[in-house]
Amino acid sequence: MKEILGVEHLSVTYTDGNRRIPAVNDVSFTVDEGEIIAIAGESGCGKSTLITAILQLLSPDIADITGSIRLNGQDLASVDPELLRRMRWTDISLVPQSAMNALNPIMSIEEQMKRIMAAHGTMPTTRDLDKRIDETLVMVNIQPRYKKLYPFELSGGMRQRVAIALALMLHPKLVVMDEPTTGLDVIVQRGILMEIRRLQKELGFAVCLVSHDMSLLIELAHTIYVMYAGRVIESGPSREIYRTPKHPYTQGLIACFPPLQGSRKVLEGIPGSPPDLGQLPPGCAFQPRCTQCLDICLAEIPVLEKVSSSRAVACHLYPSQLTSNTGESTYDRIS
C-alpha cells in the first residue's frame, strides 16, 4: 500500500534554560493509505508532542527536532511555510485534544466551516459551499439545520462531531486524532467511534489515533505503537498486541482495564507512576516500575528490535538474535 506518512528517527527535545527534556526519542513509524494506526500511552509519554511535531506546530525556539517526517513523500521540514499552510486541512488535518472545547465560541458552526474553505479550498460558489457544508455535517450525523448554532448550544458529543467534520471537510489523506473521545460518555463515545470507522471506510483516509485507552485502540486500530517516556516500546498489529503483549508495560496497560466478562480477578495495575521526562532513571525508563526487571535493565536502554515480521519490542527480556547467545545467561533476574 502507498505510504502517506513516514516518520523516521524523530526526536524532540524541549529546551528550558539549561534543562533539556527529551519528550520524543527516536520514534519511527509509517502510516499507509487507509490505515488506522494508534499511539498508546499515558500522560507525559510524549504522544502529544509527537503529533504536534508531525504537524509542524512546534516552534524551534523551544524544541530541537531531529529526524525526518514525510507526508506523501515530501519532507515536511523542507517545505516552505506557505505550502505547509496549504497542506494543512487538505492533506493532513487534526482533531485536537478536548475537541469539544477547541471550537471558536463566538462563531457559528457554519462560519467556522466557511473559514476553512476560504483559507484552504478553492472558494466555490455560495451554493456549492452551502452544499458542501451540509454534506459534511450529514456525514458526521448532524442535521444541517444546526449549522447556524454556536458551540455552546451543542452538547459535548455534537461538538466533537463538528470538530471531526471540520477535519474531514477538505477530504484529507490523513487525519490525526488526539484523544478523540476522552471525557465523553460511553454511549456517545461508541457513536463517535462507529462514525470514525464508517467514514474511514467510505472515504478511505488514514487515521493516526492517540489515546491512553488500550481497549478502545485495540478495537479500532490496525497497528498500535505503545509509547513510554518518549520512546516506542512496543509495536505490532493490535490483535497480536492484545493477545500476546510482550513488554511488561504493555502487559500492565492491558491488564489495567477490568473485563466486562469472565471472573473478577484482582487488578494489579502498574506500581509507581510515570517518570519525569526531565529526570529519567538510568537504563530502561520503565525499570523502576517493572516487575520483571533484570540487571541489564538498570544499565542499558533497550532498543526497539523486531521479534517477528510484524512486531517489535524494546525490552531486555526479548534479546535480539544477535546478542541472545551470549546475553541471556549472563544476566539473572533480580526479582
Binding site: R161, R190, G191, E219, R239
Partner: peptide
Amino acid sequence: VEAVPNPERMGQPEEIIVTPDLN
C-alpha cells in the same frame, strides 16, 4: 453494556447497538 470498548470484539462485524440521536 454494548457501548463499552471491547477488545474481544475486534474484527467482528459491527453489531447493531442503539446510539442516541443526539440532535
